[in-house]
């Protein structure tokens, strides 16, 4: 075991897999010599050579397309898209090709590609360095979509993603790279050292895709969330003095509705929290499935707390961010309903 931040945990996952499997190759803008703009791939080109860690031209569509070709020919490419906001030039390759290759060839062809990309706000990145596009990929049949909220899960899920024969969109909440974030930008940044999930095994282990986790037990209300908002929700519930059970979704597709629903059946109340815009967001899917499974146990309507339905504005990052105040308001509202 070692203390790792999320960047180190991701790096360790890549390192572990590259050592185990010569088919694993990395590609992306600035990932090679430089080690990536967030330094997730630091040192890996030096260690594994220029044929296994490829600096790519600035062409996201080209990166994903060539990753598909490599995947079809027996490699296991891990492609980095520098920011999730820049994934759209690759959208056609992801949606029309990567996601459906297995289906259209009746299982004969497939490309085991992992697409890693930093997402989410909180770094003053404005509308082009802050987006959370999980819903955009969750809606595409044939893609697995995951978002870890801590270093332990980040490493374990990334190893699972690389070993998975299906394509995985691996979303990394960049605000969590260096430490958990409790929704108070004016408070000093916290390192991962003081967080139990900052303890990460050095070698190989997996966190399987498809399983949510109860991040905190509680009896009064369930908060279903993922990514950065796991920590923000935890802090908000603490501030409000509410015993919330927090379910970290982790795997958006496939969704572990069982863990989520059994928590909601226990508490009888639920809010869904994500950073992405609310309208058409993944929260809608969560709410639909939860009400279907838990309707007779619910004491109050399920509420959603999400980013406003606007682009992420540079000057109003924290007004946009669905922070503690909005989570507490929603918690109080579901607690008061009877």
């Amino acid at each position: 075991m070692a203390i790792m931040n999320m960047l180190q945990a991701l790096n360790s996952a890549l390192d572990t897999m590259m050592a185990r499997d010569p088919a694993v190759v990395l590609m992306g803008e600035d990932v090679g010599y430089f080690g990536g703009v967030f330094r997730v791939t630091e040192g890996l080109q030096r260690k594994y050579g220029e044929h296994r860690v490829l600096d790519s031209p600035i062409a996201e569509g080209g990166i994903v397309a060539t990753a598909i070709g490599m995947g079809v020919h027996g490699l296991r490419p891990v492609a980095e898209i520098q920011f999730a906001d820049y994934i759209y030039p690759a959208y056609d390759q992801i949606v029309s090709e990567l996601a459906r290759l297995r289906y259209r060839s009746a299982g004969e062809f497939y490309a085991p590609v992992t697409i890693r990309t930093p997402c989410g706000g909180g770094i003053r990145g404005g509308q082009t360095h802050s987006q959370s596009p999980e819903a955009v990929f969750a809606h595409v049949c044939g893609l697995k979509v995951v978002m870890p909220s801590n270093p332990y899960d980040a490493k374990g899920l990334l190893i699972s993603a690389i070993e998975d024969d299906d394509p995985v969109v691996f979303l990394e909440p960049k605000r969590l790279y260096n430490g958990p974030f409790y929704g108070e930008p004016d408070q000093p940044a916290q390192p991962w050292n003081n967080h139990p999930k900052g303890e990460v095994p050095d070698g190989y282990y997996k966190v399987p895709i498809g399983y949510a986790e109860v991040a905190q037990e509680g009896s009064q209300v369930t908060i279903v969330t993922y990514g950065t908002m796991v920590h923000v929700a935890q802090a908000a519930a603490r501030t409000a003095g509410i015993e919330a059970e927090i379910v970290d979704v982790r795997s958006i597709v496939p969704l572990d509705i069982h863990t989520i629903a059994s928590s909601v059946r226990k508490t009888g109340r639920c809010i869904v929290v994500h950073e992405a815009t609310g309208f058409g967001g993944f929260g809608g899917e969560l709410v639909a499935q939860i009400q279907q499974d838990c309707f007779w146990h619910l004491e109050a309507p399920i509420l959603r707390v999400a980013g406003w339905d606007t682009p992420y504005p540079h000057a109003f990052e924290w007004e946009y961010f669905p922070g503690p105040a909005r989570i507490i308001a929603a918690l109080k509202s579901v607690m008061e309903a009877s």
Partner: peptide, 29 residues
């Protein structure tokens, strides 16, 4: 990104625009 910002605080620094000056709105992409 202040009260006189032509982008009303929505864009990262240096992504200007100027309609009358025939300078298009700059994208971060």
């Amino acid at each position: 990104s202040n009260t006189r910002d032509m982008c009303k605080g929505r864009q990262l620094p240096v992504l200007y625009h100027w309609k009358e000056g025939n300078l298009f709105s700059q994208s971060g992409n």
